[in-house]
């Protein structure tokens, strides 16, 4: 017996009518789950705490203003600013690292945020120790160095190596990584624009569309040779989808125009079909490559009499 889905006529995602057209490209396959290829954001609690640990320095700096100690204030508020900057760099670095981990083909970040965060934090501690807490300068430098070392050890270094680029032409895979980065940005823009529509059903459809787009990305990442054929998809279609969504969101949030909504839904349907078609075609090409490979090898075995 199949489990029955919970929900009534007023539930946010009403049960599909039996036999109604589905958003799966019409081939009977179930629609992609919305969270496919998306990861939950990892939260590193210690990294979050780096935003709060420098707070006493802020209070101390404000206290120095009351005391009239200009150098002390400079050390404490300067140290506080540097430590907050370091905390922000660290959180950006962790985000970049997550994105790097989630992808099969990735380039190292252009700016090593976590390493710079460690160094900036060390300078902040040294400044706060020597000017603020009144320690001798060498002691401040030692504390700063230990803080940098602990930061780098505790929060790690940035990913420094190219990933998934072994055995493939480096130039080619670099192009793939760049193209996917651009396309991911377009998908993020698409999702942002869909948030402004203010209609849960449509937002869910756009999210499914984004999941389908990411499926295509994974296919391209797996086989960089697909890039030339997927390039149009990665730029033109996604950009069009994003711009159309932004315009529709503006319009629909103003006047709830049902005509525009119908047209937009038709566009989403077309895009869904085209995205899944695209993915299938790219995979089909891999399949025919494999067939050719097998054919050639078997023929060769035949010719050399290794096979009965």
């Amino acid at each position: 017996m199949a489990a029955e889905r919970f929900g009534g006529p007023y539930s946010p995602d009403p049960r599909p009518e039996p036999g109604a057209g589905q958003a799966d490209g019409g081939d009977g396959a179930p629609p992609l789950p919305r969270f496919r290829n998306r990861r939950a954001t990892r939260v590193n609690i210690l990294a979050r705490l780096t935003f709060f640990a420098p707070l006493p320095l802020l209070l101390a700096g404000l206290g120095e203003i009351g005391q009239g100690d200009a150098m002390g204030m400079l050390g404490e508020l300067g140290g506080f600013a540097l430590l907050i900057l370091a905390a922000w760099l660290l959180s950006e670095g962790l985000k970049a690292e997550d994105a790097y981990d989630a992808r099969k083909v990735a380039r190292p970040p252009a700016f090593p945020r976590k390493i710079v965060a460690g160094v900036v934090a060390g300078i902040g501690v040294a400044l706060a120790c020597s000017l603020g807490a009144g320690l001798p300068i060498p002691a401040g430098i030692v504390f700063g160095a230990v803080a940098t070392a602990a930061h780098l050890l505790g929060f790690g270094l940035d990913p420094m190596r190219k990933k998934g680029l072994e055995g493939v032409d480096e130039f080619q895979s670099d192009r793939v990584a760049r193209a996917i980065e651009g396309a991911e940005a377009l998908v993020a823009g698409l999702l942002d624009a869909s948030q402004r529509i203010g209609d849960r059903g449509l937002e869910a459809r756009v999210e499914r569309l984004a999941a389908q787009a990411r499926e295509v990305f994974r296919v391209v990442e797996d086989d960089p040779r697909d890039l030339p054929r997927a390039r149009k998809f990665l730029t033109v279609y996604l950009m069009g989808a994003r711009d159309a969504t932004a315009k529709f969101a503006d319009l629909y949030s103003r006047n709830r125009d049902t005509g525009a909504r119908t047209e937009y839904e038709a566009l989403l349907g077309d895009l869904e079909t085209s995205f899944s078609q695209h993915r299938k075609e790219l995979l089909l090409d891999d399949r025919s490559d494999l067939d050719v490979e097998i054919e050639v090898l078997r023929e060769r075995l035949n010719r050399e009499g290794l096979k009965a």
């Binding site: 210690l46 990294a47 705490l49 780096t50 640990a53 420098p54 707070l55 006493p56 320095l57 802020l58 209070l59 101390a60 700096g61 206290g63 120095e64 005391q67 100690d69 002390g72 050390g75 404490e76 140290g79 506080f80 430590l83 934090a121 902040g124 501690v125 706060a128 120790c129 603020g132 807490a133 009144g134 504390f143 230990v146 803080a147 070392a149 602990a150 930061h151 050890l153 505790g154 929060f155 790690g156």
Partner: peptide, 30 residues
Amino acid sequence: MSGPALKGIAAFVFLAIVFLTGLSAFGAGL
């Protein structure tokens, strides 16, 4: 000791240095 534990301790040491620096600067200012 395992890697994650070591990393956690190092991160904790970093936070402690920052926090205590702030406290001692606060104390010195009083």
